[in-house]
């Protein structure tokens, strides 16, 4: 690992005063380089209306680095593709798995866990299954806020 760069982000809405200066003083030379503060919600949530949160229960995706208790951000506006981590509704529960579309032409798709101890779900055209949303971010909290 190289250097770790710490970027300070402001996660609240703030109004920035552009070109703020005290009347008697000199303008700050930094004013010319004013740039908006990084904002995770603004920059990484592309479709706020289509974004939902989910909480992970169990270790079925552990080899993908997703553990019990993690939170994920689900975007319904993103089109799922082969290999997407998707959320679907199966047997009365929301489930999160890899989407495998390799056998689409054979009439079925697969929902694959990232853990050999869990089963692969085979879904045929006759099953009433829909991808509910696509997982786009993982949130793991190390220090409680």
């Amino acid at each position: 690992m190289g250097n770790i760069q710490i970027i300070r982000g402001v996660f609240d809405t703030q109004l920035e005063l552009q070109d703020a200066r005290v009347v008697a003083g000199f303008p700050s030379p930094a004013d010319d380089y004013a740039h908006e503060t990084l904002d995770f919600n603004r920059d990484y949530i592309r479709h706020p209306e289509a974004s939902f949160y989910g909480k992970v229960e169990g270790m079925s995706m552990k080899d993908a680095g997703i553990f019990d208790g993690d939170r994920v951000i689900i975007d319904r506006a993103v089109e799922p593709h082969d290999g997407s981590i998707v959320v679907g509704f199966l047997n009365g529960d929301f489930t999160m798995k890899y989407l495998d579309l390799k056998h689409k032409n054979d009439g079925y798709i697969e929902l694959k866990p990232a853990n050999p101890d869990f089963p692969v779900f085979k879904i045929t055209e006759n099953d009433d299954f829909e991808v509910w949303g696509v997982v786009i971010h993982l949130i793991r909290t190390f220090e409680e806020v």
Partner: peptide, 8 residues
């Protein structure tokens, strides 16, 4: 936050 959907 306590009510977000649970993913199995």
């Amino acid at each position: 936050w306590s009510d977000i959907i649970k993913l199995h």
